[in-house]
Design a protein around this nucleic acid. Structure first.
Lengths: 173, 173, 173, 173
DNA sequence: TATGAATGAGTATTCATTCAT
DNA sequence: GATGAATGAATACTCATTCAT
């Protein structure tokens, strides 16, 4: 991965995440990255290939963000760590997350199973804690953190911070 | 409003809602509407004007959907009706809702205050029912119905129907 | 000639004279004239027909302007009246003249013979006054008044007024 | 400056000079230049940019044509060289001149000060030769050569050649 | 690896014009 | 006489992509 390749990826991330994939031209990316337009195609074959490369990076970030839940075993900690996910999102990663959420609305990139491991973890956590409908509880919490994440990306962490304590208390954590 | 004007709006709604605003060409709209491309511009000035016309329609639908909450006075009914909003969305209106949610990601069309009346209604309902933090409770429920709505639009009503009863029970309705 | 027909002609004159024939759209004309676009075509068949109608009017103005020369018999008066033509152009007729000069550059409307009667009159005037080369003298004076006219249309009468007296003196009038 | 860039400029010059700026489409230019339409915009940004590039070339030609006047010091030679300007215009440069005169009628390109150096030179020449009103004389001669130039461009050099000797004699050169 | 020239298909939009009312 | 809906062809311009260097 050369310096210029990296420039291209950063430029594309910022533009795709904020303007959208279709609304961004390869010309804009090249200019922002300070490279020739041709180079984008040398490295990433086509515009879609550039998006694919970014999506792979996004998946890495998702893994990082989810790991405190995935590798936890204590049920209360699983729930607590899930609630904390959106609030621990590093500011520098906002564009990765924005891209991830934006792509949910572009058919070919919507993979609902990405959240599956979290859901499963939560389900077994709620089961272990003897909740009546562990799967429903897991789904509900997942809905909540998705919606909170979306709102953080749009309006900043402070706008949602109150929900963190409120939820921790609700789940008696 | 002539027949052809209406055709244009329907075609544009379907395409904007499913493919996205930028990904849809005026040529596609004209073809789907069975009119000449020029007519779009005679009636709506430009592509953006066409979107604006649709957004005005979307706002009408939003009003309709929210009215069972807005005009209700009994607190339990307010909460119940809020939970039911996404499940009462007529199938024929899906594209209006899809457009509404998609536009949230396009800066100039994101108006968070659209949901404000619902939030206020919920807050006073929870207050009347003596919940400890009525505003937080209102926010949480609002997050939930937003996330459920999004998922219904992507995967259909059945995928989320279980949450309706689960929530009604949770709030003892 | 109805009121609306007249509005169309005035609007077209102003636009053609100032923006140019090609740079003016029938839509602009209709708007400025306060009529529907269709009406232009009812009355004038097409955009070219509208120009033709104006050109006919222009020719009338030209006749008016030239008549003090054409119907004069005294040679010194002929020369004097020729020199005065551009300075007697009524301000209200500027657009007619502007159109006339602009059209010189659009091939199909350039009719050099329009100035012929003036040239002939001048030639015989200079002959009668025993100038050595009456035709050359006539041509030269014609060149001068053309150039002066053009400059008046572009920069106003005051910018050229000094030439009037200078020329009158030169020709001892 | 690549070969194709040059082709575009030549094609545009011929078309702009003869058909006019507005009457010429970028498609026509591309075809005549034997390039893709897109290339015009890569090199010149937009149609106006192409015109600007030509105008810069025109200014060069103007400089060339004026230099025998500007760099002359002997007053009679200054006048003689001025009279000869339109007759020395190389046939190959006609389109540059045609464009120059045509643009005088398009507001944003009319720069009357372009002729100022010639006028000044003539004024001092006539002053040195003790004419009564050197500035008026200069203005008159300038008017004449402008009008003669315009007529040469429209009807060819031969149509005006007689004026050259007539003027040289008039000014006793 | 990197550039910049070049393209062909496509984009939103405008145009002069027709026609039913 | 007058309108406004409607069109098909054209317009200036952009796009993702290729290729010679």
């Amino acid at each position: 991965m050369t310096k210029k390749q990296d420039n291209i990826l950063s430029a594309a991330l910022e533009l795709f995440a904020n303007e959208g994939f279709n609304a961004t031209s390869t010309n804009q990316i090249a200019k922002k990255a300070g490279v020739s337009e041709g180079l984008i195609f040398k490295h990433f074959k086509n515009k879609k290939g550039l998006l694919d490369a970014l999506v792979r990076q996004v998946e890495g970030k998702l893994g990082e963000a989810f790991s405190p839940v995935i590798f936890e075993t204590e049920p209360n900690e699983i729930i607590k760590n899930t609630i904390e996910i959106p609030f621990k999102m590093p500011d520098a990663d906002y564009n990765f997350w924005r891209l991830q959420f934006k792509l949910k609305w572009e058919v070919e990139y919507h993979h609902p199973e990405k959240m599956k491991p979290i859901k499963d973890k939560l389900t077994s956590a709620f089961a272990e804690l003897n909740y009546d409908s562990p799967e429903m509880e897991a789904g509900l919490l997942q809905h909540l953190i998705e919606s909170i994440s979306v709102n953080i990306l749009r309006e900043g962490k402070e706008s949602q911070i109150a929900y963190k304590d409120f939820l921790l208390e609700k789940y008696k954590l």
